[in-house]
Design a protein around this nucleic acid. Structure first.
Lengths: 372, 372
DNA sequence: CAACTCGTTTTGAACGATCAATGACGGCAG
DNA sequence: CTGCCGTCATTGATCGTTCAAAACGAGTTG
């Protein structure tokens, strides 16, 4: 093989044909429909291809076949803590395995994303789209479906259960339920849920998992559901309130790793201030001296779980028990379904729900503090 | 505009021409060389383009012009803590502003990357490459230069100062020097450097920055340089040793955020065990008196700085002072230079070094502990 | 032995744009 | 009035591939 690359002089199907003593079309067939070519001719052609280092010119092929073998995917703001980074990796791999590549672009908003998509569509620059991060009143699926552009969503059509497009998603409820089960196994009974405000599809799904598991074990629910926008500070503040409440939980299941980190920080603060005494506490939070309880460190030994198994989870201490999404499997499934759509092998939309896995670390290792 | 997308019936240059009562080529000129078209004709053509929602078919244009308006960039393992994620975002934005898009792919190794590059080259699937994360004995620049493929590297050609290709990089030495200066301003004199083993271009560069700044201020160097592979555990272990040494530093400048996190953890451990030690000695009685020694815990209050301003830096506590690379500027410069190469406007390679900025957070807020 | 089939290979014609060269037109000098 | 020039607009050729249909040759069959 080899044959150094000399720009402007690359082998074409024509030169391969000459070299192998066949016609253009036979070379083309050897690559795209080998079964139509007699075996010995095939080997001869493939040898020539290999010898000249020939690879079909993408532009010419695209022009003729009206397809680009490119999929578009929007890069999402890194806020997710690397989740979509992992997904993009997996997506690129899965696509390349099947002869496709991924064109990634960034956009500041859904509208900006649609602008880019429109541009790519009109230019026939990509064959299909992968939508990530679906949310309530998401304009993208309808927009794409309306123009007949093939796409698959990573994420369910929240709020539109009847949506007729293909999607792949991870069963967040099951993930959270698994976290609760795990805590129950370790003896916990008062297990709180720290979630996002109601109305986000993903957040509500995860909450449902907590509710389901808690109900199944007849565990207490009252006063154990806390909600705030995603963020460490808010989570820490809620946790502080929780610790000061009459009967704090022994464990907190969080809707995200960031929230869980906030909980861990609040616990750490509390532990530190308990150790040192109220006079010496550093840090900005004002936790009124609610430490005159019966025992030492009221509830400061809560078990905590997060969601997404972001890089953060391994870096903090204690290591954060978290629900890990099977992003590689999601990506493969997305690609598989997308290509089925493109090749016309599928008419009905595919709707796939994959199961996440709980990654257990030290943050859930604490047994419940003794009940009084 | 508008004009719903009906697959297989998209407007072509031909239909726009008919609609505007001109010829194919005039439409083409209106888009690619407007100055060649009489103003009133131009407006007429543009109106037609807008009305039909025409955008030139990418494949056809690519075939004719032998260019794809695509740049390739390898996704790197997320290990970097999101740095390359940020870079990729910026790269996509910068490219799109100039009419290009980014094809991203993932590869497990440099060799795998070269395989993909070879594939993309032979297929004429992209116009140029962006190499990120250059390192010692990097096979990629030579390989690409050898086949005349246009590329720009993010990262200097470490170990090959004479390399004749274009690159853009961030002045790591200056970043670290800035961190040292900052610490000196705060009164520190014993400032350690926690780096990677010698031999990595990036690491050596950063070390040079420490050395330069320390020498400039005639600060002590002996025993203040520590090295280990990147990782929290190793950094923590080294820090522990440092604390136990006869004359520990009052500040540590780290080659990476991950290392800095290791230092913070070690300090935290030490602080906790000191506190506990105090408790053990005095039992459960009031231990406030134990803190009377100059008000500072011995050595456990070192200032720390990291490098890269990764998301981790904002999440830990104290917030990590870190050197932030101007990745957006790097991306823009990379694209600018790359396009100059592609358009033939540049013959000499460009070699650009950009300055990072120090982001100050609480980890460097501690003043040096009083000398004894 | 002509006709017909089947498997394989070849030939012409796109795909939709841009490049290169040519044509139409009016202004201006000889 | 002729010839030349510059500006704009047009036509034919081309990029490298795949599609559609036709040609080929060897077997089979009536």
């Amino acid at each position: 093989m080899a044959a150094a690359h000399i720009p402007g002089n690359r082998p074409t199907v024509e030169s391969v044909a000459r070299h192998a003593q066949v016609s253009r079309q036979t070379v083309s067939n050897a690559l795209n429909a080998p079964q139509r070519v007699r075996p010995d001719t095939l080997t001869r052609v493939l040898a020539a291809i290999d010898e000249l280092g020939y690879r079909p010119n993408a532009a010419a092929r695209n022009l003729r076949t009206q397809s680009t073998r490119l999929l578009a995917c929007r890069l999402l703001p890194a806020a997710g803590g690397g989740v979509l980074d992992r997904f993009l990796h997996a997506l690129c791999d899965a696509a390349r395995d099947r002869g496709y590549d991924v064109l990634s672009f960034s956009a500041a908003s859904d509208d900006a994303e649609l602008d880019v998509l429109q541009d790519l569509l009109r230019r026939t620059a990509v064959d299909a789209y992968v939508i990530a991060n679906t949310h309530h009143v998401d304009p993208r699926p309808g927009w794409l479906a309306g123009r007949g552009a093939p796409f698959v969503a990573f994420g369910r059509p929240w709020g539109e259960p009847g949506a007729a497009h293909s999607w792949v998603d991870v069963d967040g409820a099951a993930g959270v339920a698994a976290a609760v089960e795990h805590l129950v196994d370790r003896g916990h009974r008062r297990i709180a849920f720290l979630g996002w405000p109601e109305g986000s599809g993903v957040g509500d799904d995860r909450f449902a998992g907590w509710q389901r598991a808690v109900a199944a074990h007849r565990l207490p629910e009252r006063g154990l559901v806390l909600r705030a926008e995603d963020g460490m500070a808010a989570a820490a503040a809620l946790t502080a309130r929780l610790l000061d409440s009459g009967l704090p939980p022994t464990a907190v299941v969080c809707v995200s790793d960031v929230m869980a980190l906030g909980v861990l920080r609040a616990l750490d603060d509390r532990r530190a201030s308990d150790d040192r005494g109220a006079l010496d506490h550093r840090g900005a939070q004002d936790h009124r001296g609610a430490r005159d309880h019966r025992g030492v460190r009221p509830g400061a030994g809560m078990a905590v779980t997060g969601f997404d198994d972001s890089p953060l989870a391994t870096v903090v201490r204690p290591g954060l028990t978290s629900v890990r999404q099977p992003l590689e499997a999601v990506a493969e499934k997305v690609i598989e379904v997308l290509l089925e759509h493109l090749h016309g092998d599928r008419t009905a939309p595919a709707q796939v729900l994959l199961q996440p896995a709980l990654v257990v670390r030290d943050s859930s290792a604490l047994p419940p503090s003794a009940p009084e």
